[in-house]
Design a protein around this nucleic acid. Structure first.
Lengths: 227, 227
DNA sequence: GACGTTTTTTCGGACGGCCTAAAACAAGCA
DNA sequence: TGCTTGTTTTAGGCCGTCCGAAAAAACGTC
């Protein structure tokens, strides 16, 4: 399996995981290739039984494809932990390096590295490391869905360089308890309060990239969260 | 620069370093490709100014090619130290993994890793790590050139999986002082004595893969070492 | 429901790196 | 010297992954 194909699998996996639309165009944009290349590769991966693709319609991973993608994500995140914890990489920088290393990593290396790092449960962005955690899925509730006076724990952020640069400036920490103070109208920023009572303004866009858990809804039920 | 091309450069570099003949065939055998592929790649590398190649004649690295190759060897050996010291890989196994990782390593990663490891001077096989050591070159005197009663310090061994498997069985250690007890005729083994007075028989072939330093010649001068 | 826009696919082609077969050359030996 | 053997190069071709142009399908809007 070429690094190339692996990246297609991982991209589909992550789009699915982040509840984004799995389309030819999305994949093309993420991998910086043309749409025809994506179609071609999807056809090849379908032939290999890793992807299920019907023209103009569905793109999804088969069980085999899912397993491969999960392996990749595992390797990726183990490397991220190494880079952040041992080599002191900035949170925004681990992704790019891990993206290359993951393809140079066989199962044995991944396992040894995992042991060396003490079987970490989460990567520096808060994503779970498949195989190391009891739970299999991350929270999919974003900070952006909360309403004023709701509170929640910041668990995970999207692993995107530009966002992470912004996130570093916000000085928030994963695991921190946040309370929404207010939400400005016209797609304005969220004002949240951290446990040490500091307030931070977060763009609506960025709030959609931040996943929370243990949500305490003040007035409304989760079903009404899009209000 | 593709991992592929990097491997050609490194191969030429290592052939040169180990004083072996730099021929199309040698390169083809090491990289497991056909002779035409080698010719083709040498032509391409010559065009890029990394290699100097005249048909049916010379193959050598340009200064630029040498610099690239040295960088690669540096990355390779830094990874080897990591794999051996931190992940407890066997000496015979580090090479293969490092061979892949080296191509996934930019300068920044190499530097950080190097710091993390404490700027090691030598890789697990005893080879110097370019940039970390004052000296630039390894010893090129093999154990195989010594005569009975000569003594020397085992400094470095060739980084080849099959040899290293054998070497592990010998239970010798790098840095250890060895004295040649005798040399069996008809290309028979070397009998050497270690500092703790154990004697070990080493095949003539293997003795050619083991480099020594601080040689004390008992009766003859180094010039007569091939006798 | 028809039309313009966007997305996806098909088609033909480029390029890198690999191959085999065969030709050119070099080296060793009779 | 010329023949045999081994090495290197040339020629032609394959496969994987990419592309742009253009056709086909789907989507959004009136």
């Amino acid at each position: 399996m070429s690094p190339n194909k692996e990246n297609y699998l991982k991209t589909i996996f992550e789009l699915e995981h982040d509840h984004q639309k799995i389309s030819n165009k999305n994949i093309a944009d993420i991998l910086n290739v043309s749409a025809p290349s994506v179609t071609e590769m999807l056809t090849a991966l379908t032939k290999e039984g890793l992807v299920f693709h019907t023209p103009y319609n569905e793109i999804s991973l088969t069980d085999a494809g899912l397993a491969r993608a999960r392996e990749l994500v595992r390797k990726h995140r183990i490397w991220e932990v190494f880079l952040a914890d041992k080599l002191h990489y900035a949170m925004a920088d681990v992704h790019q390096a891990a993206d290359i290393l993951e393809h140079a990593t066989d199962d044995r290396l991944a396992d040894r590295l995992n042991e060396f790092l003490g079987r970490p449960k989460r990567c520096p962005h808060g994503g779970i490391i498949p195989g190391n955690s009891d739970i299999e899925d991350d929270s999919d509730i974003t900070l952006g869905t909360l309403a004023p006076e709701d509170s929640a724990t910041l668990q995970r952020v999207i692993d995107n360089h530009d966002f992470l640069k912004y996130f570093e400036d916000l000085q928030l920490r994963l695991g921190e308890r946040l309370t929404v103070v207010k939400k400005e109208p016209f797609s304005g920023p969220f004002i949240v309060q951290t446990s040490d009572r500091a307030t931070v303004a977060i763009s609506e866009n960025a709030a959609g990239y931040m996943f929370v858990t243990d949500v305490h809804y003040h007035t409304k039920t989760p079903d009404q969260k899009t209000e």
